[in-house]
Amino acid sequence: MKKAIIPILIVVGVVLFGSAGAFAFNVTQLPPSQSTPGESFTYPSLSLSSSSITQGKVLFDENCASCHGVEANGATGLAPPLLGVGPATIDFWVSTGRMPLEQSAIQPNVHPDRFTRSQTLDIVKYVSSLDARAGPPIPVVNTKRGNLAQGANIFALNCAGCHVITGVGDALADSTFAPSLALANPTLIGEAVRTGPGNMPIFDTTQITPAQLNSLARYVTYLTKRPQDAGGAGLGHVGPVAEGFVALFFGVGILMLVAYWIGDRTPDPRIEEHNE
């Protein structure tokens, strides 16, 4: 009987698909005991020495000056002055593509790099040259010197409140968002910590020492690049909400379909029988 076979085939198919999935998972996921992820991260060149101020000025005038002014002293209600903010701030905003601002929003969106690394550094060098005050420099972050456990500790105390303990980010008040840290590299992490972009608090070197920053960057890299999802699909790392939906709609859903296969429906008493 055809009808009998279809559900069986479906269930068997699901099983086989599931096991194939497990193999796939297994292939893509390194066993935890192998080399600790995050250790072999290459981070961008930090050297400003080879950057060109003149090249930076051209880029600045083309892309930034319309809002921040040719002198980079800002425009009230439109753009903040950039004088004296320091290389770390400029580098963070430009290299994440949050600047130049694409559209007016409470919180700029991340964009893929519009400038090459060297172009970004040109802009940084040019803007930094405009003011004698030295803001925070681009931090030198070396994850190899970091300590994972120390980083985890600092992250839970200072970062998890907004960025979530798994680093996936979440919505804050009034249309602001703590972004996911998945795209962050150690330099960006360092810059964000030191300059407090947007609503993020600033953590200076007394609060998070350079050594602690190494640890923090190492842990964040570990957490976001290679989270140890020993238990299977991570379900977005957003915690019990996603798990609840999976339990309700996948788990109970499948089991209800099986119940529907096992059982029958009761004939309607009010239908006239077709017997003669």
Partner: peptide, 18 residues
């Protein structure tokens, strides 16, 4: 634990009181 420094607001992570 959530301080929004630009808005000068504190946010509670459990039930989002600001």
């Amino acid at each position: 634990g959530l301080y929004l420094q630009e808005f000068k607001e504190l946010l509670c992570p459990c039930h989002q009181s600001v």
